[in-house]
């Protein structure tokens, strides 16, 4: 059971994982639209401004396509196996399923309130905010929860890459870290430009 949660790609890949992964991405985007939660980079969860539904969907697709494309290029360059493009894109789509529960985080107002409270108390930005101890506890719990989901997502992306590209050992870890860092920077930039154009 734990193996299936951490490494479902041992059992599922290709078209099946692509269809499942895309369904999860679209569902997460739709829930994010209602809860005002968006994912401005491949490993980031934030409360979002008011945006149309397609903004959330495109943002999630940008994240998935960017990491998958870089992983495919890395696999072609460094793998000795015959790598199928459908396995890379399919497993990376399915790897994003921990962000499905993450899309619900925005339904609680505690996180946004806590953010405003921190801004006011540390930087004197915005307006004074009154926040109860319970709201602080809820916000901290949600922050820890989103952090755990992000760690789970990274573990899934790593296992997806390991199986679909068949790269092993320290070479795998080094390539994965480089691809992850490049993808974070690029998705952050692309999503920032995309958001700017909508304002």
């Amino acid at each position: 059971m734990i193996k299936k949660l951490i490494n479902p790609f041992y059992y599922i890949a290709g078209l099946k994982s692509l269809a499942l992964g895309l369904a999860i991405i679209i569902l997460s985007s739709t829930i994010g639209y209602f809860s005002h939660t968006h994912f401005p980079s491949i490993i980031s969860i934030k409360t979002s401004p008011d945006m149309p539904l397609w903004y959330f969907i495109i943002q999630n697709l940008i994240n998935w396509l960017t990491i998958s494309t870089f992983m495919y290029i890395a696999a072609i360059l460094f793998s000795k196996s015959k790598v199928r493009i459908i396995d890379i894109y399919g497993t990376q789509a399915l790897a994003r399923y921990p962000y499905f529960p993450a899309a619900f985080i925005g339904f609680s107002e505690a996180l946004e309130l806590f953010g405003k409270y921190i801004l006011w108390t540390t930087l004197k930005m915005g307006e004074p905010v009154e926040i109860s101890n319970i709201e602080i506890m809820v916000a901290v719990t949600l922050i820890v929860f989103s952090l755990l989901l992000t760690i789970w997502l990274i573990a899934l992306m790593f296992n997806a890459f390991k199986i679909s590209a068949n790269i092993k050992g320290s070479k795998l870890s080094i390539i994965f870290i480089i691809v992850l860092v490049i993808s974070v920077i690029i998705t952050e930039y692309l999503n920032y430009q995309f958001t700017l154009k909508l304002y």
């Binding site: 790609f9 041992y10 059992y11 994982s17 000795k80 396995d87 497993t91 068949n166």
Partner: peptide, 13 residues
């Protein structure tokens, strides 16, 4: 074997 295609390909490799 009820495994994914890349898992089996990796075993073969």
């Amino acid at each position: 074997l009820n495994l994914s295609y890349p898992t089996v390909r990796n075993m073969l490799d």
